[in-house]
Structures are given as C-alpha cells and as structure tokens.
C-alpha cells in the first residue's frame, strides 16, 4: 500500500494536472518575470550571472506561492480538510504530502525557467549540470518546507495570497541568497570559494524549517 504522504502527493498532482491551471499559472508568471527582466539591458548586452540567478529564484519563489495556494485551497472546496484531520494519521503527513507535491510542481516550473534564463538572459556558460540540479533540489527543499507551512497558515484568510507573500519573503531571504550565490557560480561567475559555506547555510535552513514545520503544523492546520 502506498505510504499516505505519497498518496496525498499523488492525489494533489492528479488534481493539479486535471485542472491544468495549477501548473500553467506559476510557469507563466515565472516566464513573464524572466522576459520582463530580459528587457532591462540594452540590446546586445547580457544580464550578469548573479542577476540571472536572482531572477531565476525570484521566478521560483513567485511560482511557489501560487503552487501552495492551489494545493491547500483544494482541501477547501468540500471541506475535505476535515476528512484529512479525522483520518487516523499524524497531521504532519498532510504537510509532507503537500510539500512533496509542491516540490514536484516547482521542479517542473524550474525545468521551464532554466532554458528561459539561457535564452532570454543570455546565460550560455552553464557548468556542471549535475551540480546545478543538486543545488536546485537543495534550495527547493527549503522553499517547499516553508511554502507548505505558510500555505496551510494562509488558509481561511480572505487575502491569503497577499498574506502568504508578505510572510514568506522575509523568511526565505537566507535560502534565496544561498541559491543566488550558488546559481551565479554555476552560471560562470566567481571562483566558487564560498560554495561550501552556502551549502552549509542551505542545509542549516532546511533542517531548521523542516523541524519547525513538523512541530508547528498541527497547531496551524489541526485546529478546525
């Protein structure tokens, strides 16, 4: 039998793909961001590697907000949230399931953003693709840990999208800075001396927010 967090993830992905909007909107929003920033330099000039990395992670962050809003609002239409809360399982499974689904959707969006960065921002010196993927997965883990927690927190608020963005961005600063620094290295800028330190920052961030989310989620989502 499929573990319940994976069953939750599979259900969410099925719902998102059946509807389409849950993945198309984040991808389009990110692409628009990349395209608009590509207009910020004169014709013939490329955006710096650091700026390109910043735009990539900004697009990812905006996409993440839409993704988690979609994932958590799907439990509201017929109050299936109550059903999940009554199911005989730790409440944290919901957080894990949503985080996994969000991670998959975010990765899919990034698979579109990466070539867009190359094409629109002139970044053609991408090195060490396996390392790039590893870096993306590492930062994504931190993003979805926070995103899944705050997605749950924002449910029930009429202005949930704006609330989510207001709360989420200050929290994401450390992991975004790390992502930008690592990204700029992989896009051919810098010597990579600080790479180890930034990986340490991301690992610490991931451990902290994963632990905090597991601890806080029942208080945030468990109270009906």
């Amino acid at each position: 039998m499929t573990p319940r967090p994976l069953a939750l993830m599979a259900k969410d992905l099925r719902l998102v793909f059946a509807d389409g909007a849950g993945i198309v909107q984040p991808v389009l929003l990110g692409l628009i961001l990349v395209f608009v920033f590509s207009l910020s330099t004169p014709v013939g000039h490329d955006v710096s590697a650091q700026a390109a990395a910043a735009i990539f992670w900004l697009a990812t962050s905006f996409a993440m907000i839409l993704v988690f809003n979609t994932l958590y609002s799907s439990e509201g239409s017929n109050q299936s949230r109550i059903g999940l809360l009554l199911a005989p399982m730790p409440i944290q499974y919901i957080w894990i399931g949503k985080a996994l689904a969000g991670g998959v959707l975010l990765l899919m969006a990034q698979l579109v953003f990466l070539p867009a960065i190359v094409v629109f921002l002139g970044q053609d010196e991408v090195t060490a693709w396996p390392m790039v993927l590893g870096c993306i997965l590492l930062v994504d883990w931190g993003l979805v840990a926070v995103g899944s927690l705050l997605g749950a927190m924002s449910q029930g608020h009429s202005a949930r999208d704006s609330l989510l963005s207001v709360v989420i961005f200050p929290l994401l600063i450390p992991v975004l800075l790390a992502g930008i620094s690592m990204g700029s290295y992989f896009l051919g800028d810098g010597s990579g001396e600080d790479l180890g330190s930034w990986i340490g920052v991301v690992l610490a961030f991931n451990a902290l927010f994963t632990g905090a989310a597991l601890l806080l989620f029942p208080f945030i989502y468990g109270e009906y």
Binding site: S74, S77, N78, Q79, S80, I82, A87
Partner: peptide
C-alpha cells in the same frame, strides 16, 4: 463522519475519491 460537507474532490472520479480515502485509512 458524514456531514453537510462531502469531502469529495471534484477533480477526481467517484472511484478515485473512494480509493483515496481507503488509502488514508
């Protein structure tokens, strides 16, 4: 618990809905 709200996911079929809740239990 069976209440006013059905806990049904509109994007899934009837069979998929039942299968999902069977998995949760």
């Amino acid at each position: 618990y069976l209440g006013h709200h059905t806990f049904i996911y509109p994007g899934l079929s009837g069979l998929e809905n039942l299968r999902f809740w069977a998995g949760m239990y």
